[in-house]
């Protein structure tokens, strides 16, 4: 059963009771909350995700709860808790959804050390994944959305999770966070964007979330092999082009975006080396996401043709 199959009453009953257990990629989250706006927004963004039964053990037990105002004139506030820890101060209750998303991120990057984790969006076509790595503001979410419009599958908007044993990229196809001007852009180039509520005045400016495509959620147990590592950098006056990077430089740039390189030590070096062995690395300065997506799409087409047997090409 999916979250979208539940009625409003059932949703409130589950979220307000023992919590709703959701499978998101390799993780099971148990989310409890009484906050009605969060229940409505979350159940829209995660409508296609499967609900787990009570026999499956949760990786993260999360609660988003109303908090005291502190001062009577302050707006209503809320707190995020995960297994007894609270990574944020209390926040405005109207921002419960963005804070829940940031809290889910915190759960993963603080605890999921069975994976080598990078700050990246990841998309896949024909079995090969493109890792779009970069710090916040580099334009990777906008480029990711443009690639979804070109038929790429969403693996993740926030994390590249690498299984260090097999070198696979594991999907975590959570909603794509869109900020500022990219919101209008994505509405224009995606044929049927399913966009959640727009939040003004967050710590990252105006923010909304793109609901993950249904196919990405249905295939969230299918890992992909790495094909390309791309470092996008958005600038209004940039000449959009793919610039090949030397592999050693690609390694070091990716290490900068890694959450747990030091924690995993030798295993991280080996896994990252294996990734760089198999993936071509590029810088991608760009002004327009659609033009940048065409260049990345061209990489997949070239590889697809190059991979054909000689008599079929």
């Amino acid at each position: 059963m999916k979250i979208g199959d539940l009625t409003s009453d059932q949703l409130h009953q589950q979220f307000d009771g023992a919590g709703l257990r959701i499978r998101i990629g390799p993780f099971i989250f148990n989310l409890r909350t009484q906050i009605c706006d969060l229940i409505a927004e979350f159940s829209f963004l995660y409508a296609d995700f499967p609900i787990c039964d009570a026999s499956e053990i949760s990786d993260f037990r999360v609660r988003v709860a109303p908090a005291g105002r502190g001062r009577p004139w302050r707006e209503a506030r809320a707190e995020f808790w995960a297994d007894g820890a609270s990574p944020f101060d209390a926040f405005p209750r109207r921002l419960a959804t963005p804070f829940a998303e940031w809290g889910f991120n915190w759960c993963i990057y603080s605890h999921a050390h069975q994976f080598l984790m990078f700050h990246s969006a990841v998309v896949e076509k024909a079995g090969r994944a493109a890792i779009l790595a970069g710090p916040p503001g580099s334009g990777k979410s906008t480029l990711c959305a443009a690639l979804l419009a070109s038929g790429w599958r969403l693996l993740s908007d926030e994390f590249a999770l690498i299984d260090p044993v097999h070198g696979w990229l594991m999907p975590v196809p959570r909603p794509v966070a869109l900020k500022g001007a990219s919101i209008g852009l994505v509405e224009r180039f995606l044929p049927d964007p399913r966009i959640g509520r727009v939040f003004a005045d967050t710590r990252k400016g105006t923010l909304t979330h793109l609901r993950p495509p249904t196919e990405a959620v249905e295939r969230q147990c299918e890992p992909a092999l790495p094909g390309w590592v791309v470092f996008p950098t958005h600038a209004a006056d940039a000449a959009t082009k793919l610039v090949p990077l030397r592999k050693a430089v690609g390694f070091l740039r990716l290490e900068e975006n890694c959450f747990n390189y030091k924690t995993l030590g030798r295993a991280a070096f080996d896994a990252l080396s294996q990734l760089i062995d198999t993936a071509a690395c590029y810088e991608l300065p760009f002004a327009q996401a659609v033009a940048a997506a065409e260049l990345v799409d061209g990489l997949a087409e070239f590889r697809s043709v190059a991979g054909l047997p000689l008599d079929a090409a």
Binding site: R246, K247, A248, F251, K262, G265, F269, S273, I276
Partner: peptide, 17 residues
């Protein structure tokens, strides 16, 4: 631990990390 690509080396020192 060594890796070499295109005449460049990356070396991981397991003692210092």
């Amino acid at each position: 631990v060594w890796r070499m690509w295109e005449d460049e080396f990356l070396v991981y020192n397991t003692t210092s990390g």
